[in-house]
Design a protein around this nucleic acid. Sequence first.
RNA 1: GCGACCGUGGCGGAACUGGCAGACGCGCAGGAUUUAGGAUCCUGUGUCGAAAGACGUGAGGGUUCGAGUCCCUCCGGUCGCACCA
Length: 744
Amino acid sequence: GWDVFEPIGFDAFGIHSENYALNVNTHPAKLIPSNIARFREQLKRTGLMVNWDHQLSTTDPEYYRWTQWIFLKLFESGNAVKKEAPVNWCPECKTVLANEQVIDGYCERHPGTRVHQRHLSQRFFTITRFAERLLENLKTLDWSESTRTMQTNWIGRSEGAELVFQTPAGTPIPVYTTRPDTVFGATYLVLAPEHPLVDEVTAAERQDDVGKYRRRAAQMDIVTRKVGDKEKTGVFTGTYARNPATGETVPIWIADYVLMEYGTGAIMAVPAHDERDYEFANKFELEIRRVVEPAPSAESVSQKGEAADLPFISWDGVLVNSGSFDGMSCRAGTGAITAWLAERGLAKAKVQYRLHDWCISRQRYWGPPIPIIYCDSCGTVPVPEADLPVLLPEIDDFRPDESGVSPLARHEEWYRVPCPTCGNLGRRETDVSDTFLDSSWYFLRYPSTDFDDRAFDKETSAKWLPVDSYIGGNEHAVLHLMYSRFITMVLHDMGYLEFEEPFSRFRAHGTIVKDGAKMSKSRGNVVVPDDYIAQWGADTFRMYLMFLGPYLEGGDFRDEGIAGIRRFLDRVWALIPDVAANSDEIDRQATRKLHQTIEKVASDLEGLHYNTAIAALMEYSNELRSLVASGSGVPAELMEPLIIMLAPFAPHFSAECWERVGKEGSVHDATWPAFDEELARADEIEVVVQVNGKVRGRMRVTPGLSRDEAVDSALADEGVKRFVEGKEVRKAIYVQDRLVNLVV
RNA sequence: GCGACCGUGGCGGAACUGGCAGACGCGCAGGAUUUAGGAUCCUGUGUCGAAAGACGUGAGGGUUCGAGUCCCUCCGGUCGCACCA
């Protein structure tokens, strides 16, 4: 009875589509429309009931015009910055990947292809500025726990401090640490190979070795660097820095176990209390100085690491060898030492995130061009909104090459345009944007597809958004959801939206496994609906999908149970001739079952427990079948609600049934049956009698029996007497309307 | 390695705040109908046992009158993160 808007769309920009187009040697602009038509046909055939009037396609200029508009808004608000940065380069895709698209150092789409580092000038969205809000808001969202956890981990907030070590020349080397309390144990310093100070701190006689090491690190792909066997490597710079706490000098090393992209790209190493530093110090024979003792009371000291009973990364301890801080707990020491160093300008508290800015540049063809024009005199000029869309030209040579620039950069006739500001000849940005940008705002477009003069209409958005119920795969738990939240926040801050979180409720559907592997397009083990629909009918097929397991958990796809669903529908069908329009007296028991079913189906649908909702409908139809078996007809009052409740599951079938029982109009417009608590209540229930926790009898009683009555009649039960006779009942537990447990 | 989720009949799976384990369906067995098969309908179907009953939710321990559910240890699986200082 509620107004519900369930839209659908197609997101066919991006590398998947482009690679496929390259494979079959057809232009994506030709391929996509026919594929969409095929999808649409199949979805309609399975009875997908969505609002086709508001469908959209992200490759449509009428859509990506507004994707470009979104980009302009980010640019306008200073959230789309250009940075020269080391990026993940997939030699197979021949393009840059977001960090999120690199899996264990391999390309997400080419599991056999290692991702390399490459330095390119890229456009980034400054999502890291929103890290705190993205994290905080998670608490307010009705999302599944696991998805929130994944987002929390991805944002990766940690609290600590930036401490300053100084070279003899006085150059400060800031390091980030979550454990400033251990600074007295920092016996050496490590810089990432890419650290900008490496050249400066390297002694003349060490230049060769350091240079060699850096070149090796630079060539190394991320697999060996990050995942490999984790055998520590490193090289000494020949110089020393001053530990701000002890005043002693400590050697400065270069090692690739320190990552440039996190913290300051430099660490203070505390080998006594950090496993990685410990391993490194052992290998290169560096000093290991213990500064934390297990607290006398604390048992939970980490036992990791061979030997030494060094409390690695544990907070349960007291400081030793730490000057005036000796005896302090680690936690107290953290604050005290940071404050003490801060007085001399050598420390400041700092919150660090693992989240990186979102690189949206793609050196590919099949995406929305980034609406920027570079002009020699005006610099970076955004394309005026009135000039949108910047159309993606239909070129034949869209295959990417090794150059690191988009195929569009080979088309001067396209990128040579006058500067919108001064009119001199300028140059379009030739990169296109990441597909994730298309999908990070599409939900805003759905209700507003009728507006061709704005991305989304404020009033329309206020009516329909944020999305009340959003369901997606777990693969979206990090990327898509994070990006969408970020874009929504930016638009909110700019005054375009009244809400800052796009999805009030999110649930991840489970994964369907077939032949032992996740069912997916890339694995090719998909089930094509056509054959099933031909053999069993669309309603049987879709209902079976809902019945085969819990929706949120997924499961194995196998054909074996599908006949059961077909039989169920056939049996409902067989009831129709027995439907009696006029029934004076309606069976009490069946009426009760009906109302219990109404309640169960409603709550199961809300909780997405489709399998148990269907089971409840089966039980109810069995109840009606037993009416027929006993010789009476099926009152229309009992049959019609069943047909209505079947409608979401078997839309074609229930529409036909509706007509057969003589109802006017469409079952899909019919009012959902109302639950009546009175009618659902049983007037007699079964209470189980246990003796010492074992079931020894059952009794039929009216609901609401008192404790004494219940115990008395339990004791009177013949079956129970046998076990109680001659013994003393020490205790009697009564759970209202459920059971009596006698302890003897 | 860290984190999250999960482990129940021959199979897919039910079981709200601890309260009859196995709903619903598949499969299987017997029966009805049929010349036969298929389809359909009825009955049965956790294990052991003739029965009474006992035993049963990955393994082991614990809390409780009572544990699939809560706690501890371990084993196995799925997913995510992974040298993040």
